[in-house]
Nucleic acid binder design. Structure first.
Lengths: 350, 350
DNA sequence: CTGAAAGCGCTTACAG
DNA sequence: CTGAAAGCGCTTACAG
């Protein structure tokens, strides 16, 4: 590994002080054109670029952001990460990705905080700001330990979290819209004549699930539709969960005629289950996915789903963080109103 | 933002020198039990943790890795990232994620290197090592500019790249197996009686596609099956590509009876296309996916696919990088022999 | 416009 | 076992 040239070598070879080299690099102070040209030539020659560790130490900014998520395999999170990294890079920041593997189930079992070690890590790395998406923050019951850790983190550096607001914690909280989409989807299904609409997937004890569930119940009641608890089948957010959850609904004496799948994974799993019962979507059962992961237009059947504007959300979040770091006015609130994209899986009037 | 305590404060409050504090922290030199206890108490009290920028500067290691990929939305890459980040974290490294957005198409148009700016960035951040997966390295024709940039990068720090070996470039190259899987899949389809097997998806000019294509042709020839060029329909690696590519095969006067989809995205898109032609998988057309992204067991039809052990590959790559950084013996070569998981989509003997 | 010097927060020979 | 001092690679008042 070749030792790197430092500003000292550049200064020497240019016949100037390191201060001058630093100034031509940063442009923060005037340098005579001749000197500047000479220095730039040497910089070119050695392909010199300042050590950001040293720079960060003195400038008190690392030009690095932390992004903390529970899981990268879930398309929701990878979309978030993709958009955020791109925008960060454009703004000259790099992002340290932290995948905590937090799951509500394992937390319930072990009680171990998956996220705290990452909080400390980003602090130690002197990141300029942190984005947290999902994880413990999505729990209905947030532990004091988490709250304290988050408070500590956010007292040191700007952090924006995608999730429910926790009182007295100095973060920016950006929340996704969980309710309107459910209302839209249910009303649409009702307009098609469905009376028994199932709720499929999502984890109990998770705020997203619980708030959607409540909306589901309220909306059903408003529309005077069947609100039997047997129509609700929770589990988690992945393919097998969709399969298992849908299966329960199919085994009912009087099965649901329509299903609300919490996301595309759930929907795909549900389609598989429905198929295993020799039933089909949408002929026998109408299906709407409440969080679009894939281009539903290429699934079979083409999936009716709610576009919840994940990319727009991601863009807002990174802009917000950057504005906090740079002390500029925050970006406008994005329009996150969910958009129901009607395709085949929801079927026609029954 | 509260100013952070430094080692100086800790030293003062403990009544020792910073050297001593440093030594209790690192354990690299003996410290008397009494002093140690006192210092540790103060460290506890302030929750002190050393500034890694300063530490990195002096230790010449940042405990940070760079991971460079073209795209995080593709499940292949997100799986890679997930496994690598987890393993890195366990080894006390953090990873800077770099998403270059490289695509062969945009490169062909603009000729712009998407990756070089990231190479420089990780160098500036003083990462201890870099993993590169996909991107320019997957091109059949690698540009001199890329080769030079990669050489420069790899001359400075350890880098392992997942992709074809480039002569004279000081990287570790780990290559996926592209050929055996194709052979296995084709032989299986042939054993079922298929004579016209289509090749669907993959981008021309990409080494992965071209090498698979060649294997496809050779294997077909060996088995004395139809090698008409019309059975090959390339495009790219995403859902719409699978759809479009499959469509071409369906419009043939004498359509293929089986299709080899380059990955699950392609397979799902192909299923959609087949369905649009009022045909079904596997009754009318047998389908095998050559790179498993999802749990094919939950798709409809259940997808027969090749497990290419992406996670195993990822684990090997991070271990290899760590061994290079830490100067320890490299890990054993992993078994990447592809595994054909036979489910419904490949059908039965025709 | 330019340089000498101090300092960012740490670690590690060196001396005791 | 412990501390004073030098140094990692940079930037920025300060003085000229």
């Amino acid at each position: 590994m070749s030792r790197n040239v430092t500003i000292i070598e550049i200064a020497k070879e240019s016949g100037v002080s390191t201060a001058t080299v630093s100034r031509v690099l940063s442009g923060t102070a005037p340098v005579s054109p001749k000197t500047k040209a000479r220095v730039q030539e040497v910089i070119q020659k050695y392909n010199y670029s300042p050590n950001q560790l040293a720079q960060g130490l003195i400038l008190r900014q690392s030009k690095t952001l932390g992004m903390i998520i529970p899981n990268i395999t879930n398309p929701y999170f990878s979309t978030l990460v993709g958009v955020i990294e791109r925008a960060a890079h454009k703004a000259n920041y790099s992002v340290i990705l932290c995948i905590t593997s937090f799951t509500a189930a394992s937390y319930r079992e072990s009680g171990q905080e998956a996220e705290e070690s990452y909080f400390q890590m980003v602090l130690d790395k002197k990141v300029d700001g942190v984005i947290i998406a999902g994880g413990h923050i999505d729990l209905c019951q947030i532990s004091d330990a988490y709250k304290n850790a988050l408070t500590h983190l956010a007292s040191s550096i700007p952090v924006v979290v995608i999730g429910q607001k926790i009182p007295d914690v100095p973060c920016c909280f950006v929340n996704k819209e969980h309710e309107k989409g459910i209302v839209i989807a249910i009303r649409y299904l009702a307009s098609l004549g469905h009376k028994r609409i199932g709720f499929v997937g999502g984890e109990p004890g998770i705020i997203i699930t619980e708030s959607r569930l409540q909306t589901y119940r309220t909306t059903l009641a408003q529309l005077k539709l069947d609100t039997s608890p047997e129509l609700v089948s929770l589990s988690d957010y992945y393919l097998p969960d969709g399969y298992n959850a849908a299966k329960k609904l199919l085994e009912l004496d009087e099965p649901a005629t329509a299903m609300l799948a919490m996301n595309d994974n759930i929907a795909i799993g549900a389609i598989r289950a429905i198929s295993d019962y020799f039933l089909s979507v949408p002929d026998d059962i109408a299906l709407i996915s409440c969080d679009q992961f894939m281009d539903g237009n290429f699934l079979t059947p083409r999936l009716t789903s709610l576009d919840r504007h994940t990319e727009r959300l991601a863009l807002h979040v990174i802009r917000l963080l950057l504005s906090m770091i740079q002390n500029t006015p925050p970006p406008d609130e994005p329009d996150l109103y969910p958009n129901l994209i009607i395709r085949e899986s929801s079927g026609r009037h029954i």
